Simulated assay, not measured.
Amino acid sequence: MKKYWIITFFCSALAMHAQILEKAAFNLSYRYTGRNVLQAGLEFRVGDFSHKSIVLGPSVLYTRIDQKDKFLPEANIYYSNDGQLYGASFNQYSIEPRIGISLFNIFFLNTGYAFPIHREKYFKGITFGIQFNIAPAKGSKFYDQMKIM
């Protein structure tokens, strides 16, 4: 009887893993937030709506601060509505509300304003960025489908 429960557990874990990969993507982006920043991370799409969804995920920022390489964790959240993006990102130095556009959830082009929350104001002022999302699964549900009339 234990073997059947173990097999059931592994099968359900495998199914959950497959569903997570269907709605996930890797992101690579360039942002200017008062300094040049490269970003890499994961994005997860929440919701089954074809053109309205919430995209959230963790990422790592790479920049040079005081002639030293810095890797900073960041979390972001977006609401996507027919190509329009509304969202925010949070890291240990700033909070950045953003607006932008999305092309089928493949490219995000956004702008915002970084509000410093730390004594050292490494990130502040008007920001802009471009993000490229790469889905690891073929036939991914992360991307929006094109409407054909």
Rank of each mutant, 00 (worst) to 15 (best):
L56Y: 03
T127S: 09
F49A: 08
L72G: 04
V55E: 03
S102I: 02
E96A: 03
Y93W: 01
T127K: 07
F104Y: 14
Q67S: 15
V60N: 08
F49Q: 11
I101Y: 12
S50N: 12
K124D: 03
R119Y: 15
R64W: 06
I117L: 10
Q39V: 04
G112W: 05
F128C: 11
R64P: 02
I65F: 10
Y78D: 06
R98A: 06
S102L: 00
Q131S: 11
H118A: 13
T63N: 00
Q92S: 12
I117T: 13
N105L: 00
D48M: 13
I117A: 06
Y113P: 12
R64L: 01
Y122V: 14
V46K: 14
S94R: 09
P73Y: 08
S59F: 01
Y86T: 15
K68P: 01
T63F: 09
V37G: 01
V46G: 04
N81Q: 12
Q92G: 08
Y86D: 11
P73T: 11
S50F: 05
R64D: 05
K52Q: 10
I117F: 04
Q131F: 01
R45M: 12
F44N: 06
R35E: 07
G129S: 05
D82C: 09
F107N: 01
V37Y: 05
R35C: 14
L103M: 13
R119Q: 15
T111R: 05
I77T: 01
E74P: 15
L85R: 10
S50E: 15
A88W: 05
L42I: 13
G100F: 05
E74W: 07
D69T: 14
K68E: 03
S59H: 02
S50P: 12
I101C: 04
R98F: 01
H118F: 09
G57W: 02
P116Y: 11
F71K: 01
S102Y: 04
Y79Q: 07
K121R: 11
G47F: 03
G129H: 03
L38E: 07
D48V: 07
P58L: 06
I101D: 08
A40M: 15
E74I: 08
I101T: 13
G129T: 06
L72N: 06
H51Q: 12
F107T: 07
K70R: 10
R45F: 05
L56Q: 07
I65G: 01
K68A: 14
